[in-house]
Amino acid sequence: MNVTVRYFASMRDRMGCADEVVSIGGDASTVAAVWAIVSEDKPMPPSTLIAVNMAYTDAAAALKDGDELAFFPPVTGG
């Protein structure tokens, strides 16, 4: 399965790109499993926010083929 992973703000700087497509064996995965792949098993910064298909979720959330996953720091709009 393929998941598009997007990074914003300081997370984009940290990861060195704005987005990437991650291929995972099988037809299901989790946010935590994808983070382990893209970060090469580095711990996730504790304040990281996570969205799947533009809805907030957490690292335990399940993923399916075609999902859009995003990692970003606390928001600072307004």
Partner: peptide, 20 residues
């Protein structure tokens, strides 16, 4: 709402605002 501020100081240094 997912917005992020990146400030530039008069000396040209850029920094992400970490919290509101």
């Amino acid at each position: 709402a997912p917005f992020w501020k990146c400030e530039t100081t008069p000396a040209g240094h850029k920094r992400w605002v970490e919290h509101n």
